[in-house]
Amino acid sequence: MSDTTTITNVITVILLLVGAFFMLAGTIGFVRFPDFYSRMHATGKCDTLGEGLMLVALIVYGGATFVSVKILFLIMFILLANPTSTHAIAKAAYDVGLEPWRKLDDRVEWMNTGDTGNTSNTGNSGEGRAGEDGEDRGEGR
């Protein structure tokens, strides 16, 4: 195969390593953080950036071909879709009534969705879900 010491391959390897670092940092944050919202804070940005960097590295490696245009479309779609899905998950969780983790909290308790004044109409299925999922979520954070 091709030599690794040419300049494009060195750039490729560096971008791949930086992207892998961001992905690993996001994964560690996803496992270690105490709350759902902070976990999403870790994954929503680190995965997007790490994936973008790794795909840019593969574009640099592939050169100006038709395949690189496909990967460019993939990057553009991911930069649009990944924050959108993260925002959708966060908004759904907030509408259902998942409270953010605070300091000195042992765990985040599930509120009754009737108590929260700002649940919008998208959380109309939240009453049953909060009720049926409250049991197995009791030990969680």
């Binding site: 999403m40 994954t43 993260t86 030990e139």
Partner: peptide, 17 residues
């Protein structure tokens, strides 16, 4: 992970990878 939202976001992260 406790709850359905952790599972949803885990599926999202694994799909991204």
């Amino acid at each position: 992970g406790p709850g359905i939202f952790n599972r949803i976001i885990a599926v999202n992260v694994i799909g991204t990878k």
